[in-house]
Amino acid sequence: MPNAERRHDKQARIDNDARLSRASGESTNLDELQELLGVQVDPTLLTLALTHRSYAYEHGGIPNNERLEFLGDSILGQAVTVKLYRENPRTDEGGLAKRRASLVSSVALAEVARTIGLGRFLLLGRGESQSGGADKSSILADTVEAIIGAVYLDAGGEVATALVLRLIEPLLDDPDRFGAALDPKTSLQELAARHSSAPPRYEVTDSGPDHNKTFHATVTVDGLVSASGEGSSKKNAEMAAALQAWSTVNERGSRARASRG
């Protein structure tokens, strides 16, 4: 390679590193996030994992978290599959597949992200931030996968697997929540029936270009709860809204029982 090209490539790498450093300086306290995750991650990699494509575009085309998301998805799937296989020796293939799907779905990962308050750490473009991107299920879920990928690259498979298991532990430890994550629409319908409420009503809208639409769902259970969710399909958006509604009612009940106790 000619010297001029080498200098150009070197300068491009330096420029990208500088942009990432600036992004790191703009992010919320990374030490706090690492404490919540229970693992130390190289700050540059963690910043990359938090960088949504909208932020990257607005900052001169710096790298975004999509490649890390691709890697993290694979690590997540393997870790969950192995755990379910080992801990459910009497469950058949179909049952294992359903459980795995519920734990690695965007709905479940977004729920995990909200439990650690991940939204406030995201690096989003101005428009995405103003439209509520910090609480969009698809963005939260993708970022969880990107963080898993970053941990894998920085600390190896064993540490990344341990992180996955810590993140999904709330779903596994709470059978009711696990059932809701598996089928949130049915769980919400059953919850409405127990409270003698009318069945849930869903309203769905969409936004964005035809090739990359985002669907927004609102579910209402009269006299009980109203909640919203979004996803890459109408079904995913309704599931996200149903899980949010179910979680709201469930947490409300837990607080009431605690106050009486």
Rank of each mutant, 00 (worst) to 15 (best):
L20Q: 10
G223M: 12
A180P: 07
G261V: 13
G156Q: 12
R100D: 01
E32I: 15
G119W: 11
S228M: 03
R194F: 03
E158K: 13
T248H: 07
Y85L: 02
G179H: 00
E158Y: 08
K136F: 13
A23E: 10
R120Y: 12
A18K: 12
D173F: 05
Y55D: 11
S207E: 11
V80H: 08
R166L: 05
S233E: 01
D176K: 13
R194Y: 05
N236S: 10
A227H: 10
S106P: 04
V159S: 05
I147L: 06
E58K: 15
A49G: 10
R255N: 06
G95I: 01
G179L: 01
E169H: 10
D176H: 14
K83A: 01
R99I: 01
E87M: 05
L163A: 02
E111F: 13
G95W: 13
V164C: 03
S226R: 15
N88A: 06
S226K: 11
E26M: 04
Y55T: 04
H211S: 09
V249I: 08
S254V: 02
I62W: 11
R166E: 15
R67I: 04
E93I: 12
H8P: 00
S196P: 14
T47N: 09
D42A: 04
A49R: 08
G179D: 04
H195A: 04
E93A: 06
D210V: 08
E190T: 07
S196G: 02
A162V: 04
T115K: 09
R6N: 04
A162S: 13
A101Q: 13
R90K: 06
G77H: 13
R120I: 03
E87Q: 04
P170D: 06
L224M: 08
L243A: 00
N3L: 13
E128K: 08
G60M: 08
L118F: 06
S102V: 01
S102D: 12
E58D: 08
A23L: 05
I14V: 05
G231H: 07
L76K: 03
L122R: 02
H216N: 07
T51K: 10
H195P: 04
Y55E: 10
G253A: 03
E26N: 02
I62V: 14
L118A: 00
T248I: 02
Q189C: 02
D135V: 15
S106W: 15
Q130W: 13
A193R: 12
R86V: 09
A141Q: 07
